[in-house]
Amino acid sequence: NQASVVANQLIPISTALTLVMMRSEVVTPVGIPAEDIPRLVSMTVNRAVPLGTTLMPDMVKGYA
């Protein structure tokens, strides 16, 4: 089972991601792979991401 990136807090729309905002967790459905966390830092989300939500590729500008 692959770990995915999960929001560690509410991430408001257009917020630049930082390490403290994300954690890795094995979830269903599978989202962005946890090993991509370093790549996600400073990318922005294009929607509000509630606490505990799995980050999907279409939620992060420039990721997909």
Rank of each mutant, 00 (worst) to 15 (best):
N1Q: 15
N1E: 15
N1D: 15
N1T: 15
N1G: 10
N1C: 07
N1A: 15
N1H: 12
Q2T: 15
Q2K: 08
Q2H: 11
Q2W: 12
A3L: 10
A3E: 12
A3T: 13
S4A: 03
S4R: 02
S4D: 00
V5Y: 03
V5D: 03
V5K: 02
V6P: 01
V6M: 04
V6I: 12
V6S: 01
A7D: 01
A7V: 07
A7I: 04
A7T: 10
N8R: 10
N8Y: 03
N8S: 14
N8V: 10
N8A: 13
N8F: 04
Q9C: 08
Q9A: 13
L10V: 10
L10S: 12
L10E: 15
L10Y: 15
L10P: 12
L10R: 13
L10A: 13
I11A: 02
I11P: 01
I11M: 03
I11W: 02
I11V: 06
I11D: 01
P12Q: 10
P12L: 07
P12C: 06
P12K: 07
I13M: 14
I13Q: 14
I13T: 15
I13V: 12
I13R: 12
S14A: 14
S14I: 04
T15I: 07
T15K: 05
T15D: 03
T15Q: 10
T15A: 13
T15S: 13
T15F: 06
T15H: 07
A16C: 08
A16W: 07
A16I: 10
A16Y: 08
L17Y: 00
L17V: 03
L17S: 00
T18R: 09
T18D: 05
T18N: 05
T18A: 08
T18V: 06
T18I: 05
T18W: 03
L19Y: 12
L19I: 06
L19S: 08
L19E: 06
V20F: 15
V20R: 14
V20S: 14
V20E: 10
V20T: 15
M21G: 01
M21N: 09
M21H: 08
M21S: 04
M21R: 00
M21W: 03
M22P: 00
M22I: 08
M22Q: 00
M22N: 00
R23C: 05
R23S: 06
R23I: 06
S24A: 14
S24N: 05
S24F: 05
E25I: 06
E25N: 09
E25W: 06
V26N: 07
V26F: 12
V26T: 10
V26R: 05
V27H: 03
V27Q: 05
V27G: 02
V27T: 11
V27E: 01
T28H: 09
T28E: 15
T28S: 11
P29T: 06
P29M: 04
P29V: 06
P29G: 03
P29N: 04
V30E: 15
V30W: 13
V30Y: 11
V30R: 06
V30T: 10
V30I: 14
V30Q: 11
G31E: 02
G31V: 02
G31I: 02
G31L: 03
G31K: 02
G31P: 01
G31D: 00
I32M: 03
I32S: 01
I32P: 00
I32L: 05
I32H: 01
I32K: 01
I32D: 00
P33A: 14
P33E: 04
P33L: 11
P33N: 08
P33T: 08
P33G: 05
P33K: 10
P33C: 10
P33R: 08
P33Q: 07
A34Q: 06
A34R: 05
A34G: 09
A34W: 06
E35G: 08
E35A: 11
E35L: 12
E35W: 11
E35Y: 08
E35C: 09
E35N: 09
D36V: 08
D36W: 09
D36S: 10
D36T: 07
D36N: 08
I37V: 06
I37Q: 04
I37L: 13
I37M: 14
I37C: 05
I37E: 00
I37T: 07
P38L: 10
P38S: 12
P38A: 12
P38Y: 09
P38M: 13
P38T: 12
R39F: 12
R39D: 05
R39E: 07
L40W: 03
L40Y: 02
L40F: 02
L40K: 00
L40E: 00
L40V: 05
L40N: 00
V41C: 07
V41S: 02
V41W: 02
V41Q: 06
V41D: 02
S42L: 08
S42P: 00
M43I: 03
M43S: 06
M43Q: 06
T44E: 08
V45I: 07
N46D: 08
N46F: 07
N46M: 13
N46Q: 09
N46W: 07
N46V: 11
N46T: 13
R47F: 08
R47V: 14
A48H: 14
A48S: 15
A48W: 09
A48N: 15
A48I: 12
A48K: 10
V49M: 04
V49T: 04
V49L: 10
V49C: 06
V49N: 02
P50V: 06
P50Y: 12
P50R: 09
P50E: 13
P50M: 09
L51K: 14
L51R: 09
L51N: 14
L51F: 13
L51E: 15
G52Y: 04
G52N: 14
G52T: 00
G52Q: 01
G52S: 06
G52D: 14
T53N: 11
T53A: 13
T53L: 10
T53M: 12
T53Y: 13
T53S: 11
T53E: 07
T54M: 04
T54L: 04
T54N: 02
T54H: 02
T54V: 13
L55F: 15
L55K: 01
L55E: 00
L55R: 02
L55G: 02
M56G: 05
M56T: 10
M56D: 04
M56I: 11
M56K: 10
M56Q: 13
M56N: 05
M56P: 01
M56C: 10
M56S: 07
P57W: 09
P57K: 11
P57N: 05
P57V: 06
P57M: 07
D58L: 11
D58M: 12
D58R: 07
D58V: 08
M59W: 12
M59I: 05
M59N: 06
V60Y: 02
V60S: 01
V60F: 05
K61N: 14
K61A: 13
K61T: 14
K61R: 13
G62H: 10
G62C: 11
G62T: 05
G62P: 05
G62M: 07
Y63F: 14
A64H: 13
A64Y: 05
A64S: 11
A64K: 12
